[in-house]
């Protein structure tokens, strides 16, 4: 994969916390996401990975702290402008498709922006995820893998600056995993799209990411280049996680 590390971060988080019902589920002292990189976020279930993605997609505000994104700076009480929010999108672990055709699902984001598909982006996205033949099919009739590929195409059609992927290949067969990984790789390489990938699959993190971050109980343990993370981790908990041991 290319490595387009830049000195100006895409995201910069400072003392970001998130609390639900008095329980702090996220406590990030600092994190920078570089433009054009794929950053994998690994860690056990319930460690706060998905919560972090929701904050980065501006679907929820942090309880405290600052999130700098591009040229904006957002805190707990600052509304994020719609135009900023529309520069980021998420592909969830469980894709929920609309009760419409595959084509209409992929076009959906353009409709929200009042845009037409003048340049054939929908068909191009369908072709990229290998579903051109199913364009007119009702989306609800697709298999799990096909549905996830539609969700990815739906996200890429709106050409976001940042693509957040929340365990996008969990429970998928190797073929669908391959299509999704190839698509993410292409988007990153050809369009310079920044991606943040939450995954339980350390092999996938190794295949796709430039850098990897380990998160435990809402806190970042280590963020390192992919080779350092897997081959010479600084933190013993990272080393244990990479070896496949239980880490708490």
């Amino acid at each position: 994969m290319n490595n387009t590390a830049s000195s100006v971060p895409c995201y910069a988080l400072e003392a970001v916390t998130k609390t639900y019902g008095g329980r702090r589920v996220l406590d990030i002292a600092g994190l920078e996401v570089r433009p054009g990189e794929v950053l994998a976020l690994v860690g056990p279930s319930g460690s706060g990975k998905s919560t972090l993605l929701r904050l980065l997609n501006f679907l929820e505000p942090p309880t405290s702290g600052r999130i700098r994104f591009m040229d904006g700076d957002y805190g707990p009480d600052q509304p994020v402008p719609l135009a900023v929010r529309r520069r980021v999108t998420t592909v969830a672990q469980r894709p929920i498709l609309l009760n419409r055709s595959v084509w209409a699902n992929i076009r959906f984001g353009l409709g929200l922006r009042g845009e037409r598909d003048g340049d054939g982006r929908v068909d191009a996205a369908l072709a990229q995820v290998g579903l051109a033949a199913l364009a007119r099919q009702p989306a609800r009739t697709l298999s799990g893998g096909e549905a996830q590929r539609v969700a990815l195409a739906r996200a890429m059609v709106i050409e976001p600056d940042v693509l957040l992927l929340d365990e996008p290949t969990a429970n998928l067969d190797p073929y669908n995993v391959g299509v999704i990984e190839d698509t993410v790789r292409t988007l990153n390489r050809d369009r310079g799209m920044t991606a943040m990938l939450v995954t339980h699959n350390v092999f996938q993190a190794r295949r796709l990411a430039h850098r990897v971050a380990l998160i435990l109980e809402g806190r970042l343990v280590e963020v390192a280049d992919v080779h350092v993370f897997f081959e010479a981790p600084r933190d013993p908990r990272t080393a244990a996680f990479v070896r496949g041991e239980m880490v708490y």
């Binding site: 679907l59 980021v88 999108t89 998420t90 969830a92 609309l98 996200a155 709106i158 957040l164």
Partner: peptide
Amino acid sequence: VDPQLRQQVQSLGATAWQTTLTVLAE
């Protein structure tokens, strides 16, 4: 309607009004 749909629609850039209309359409 699946509550996750709202979040996924918002993630695609929907306003609150567009989210409500999408849920009603579903």
